[in-house]
């Protein structure tokens, strides 16, 4: 009984009446479109994608560029070598002494 009602309802739903559209509906739409200019608005998302595409680099290049930048940052941020400072001060003391000797 219940199945019969289900089937009947399904039949009713499938046979719902649709008033036919005007036969020229598609032509009307096409005709109206001919008079409309196309605009090409680009959404923010699309704009971002295009921007990223401009700067697109292959992955090895990304890796190389990152390694170089990292190396430069580390290189500049480290204090200079303490041994070379000691060498500099030894050289200047020797120079001073030799100047003194020349005077004597």
């Amino acid at each position: 009984m219940n199945d019969h009602r289900d089937d009947k309802l399904d039949d009713l739903l499938r046979s719902r009446r649709v008033e036919p559209a005007s036969p020229d509906l598609a032509q009307r739409i096409i005709f109206k479109a001919r008079r409309l200019p196309q605009t090409r608005t680009v959404s923010l998302w699309q704009w971002m994608r295009q921007l990223c595409a401009e700067f697109h680099l292959p992955k090895p290049a990304y890796l190389l560029a990152s390694a170089l930048i990292l190396g430069m940052v580390i290189g500049f941020s480290l204090p200079s070598d303490p041994d070379s400072k000691a060498e500099d001060s030894t050289a200047s003391v020797t120079g001073f002494l030799s100047t003194d000797e020349a005077l004597l």
Binding site: A21, S22, K32, A33, T39, R40, T41, V42
Partner: peptide, 21 residues
């Protein structure tokens, strides 16, 4: 409603034409 349904379909297609993106 036939007229309303036709208008909706027309609007939808014209929107697509005007802004195919």
């Amino acid at each position: 409603n036939r007229e309303a349904a036709e208008d909706v379909v027309q609007d939808a297609f014209l929107k697509l034409w005007e802004n195919p993106a």
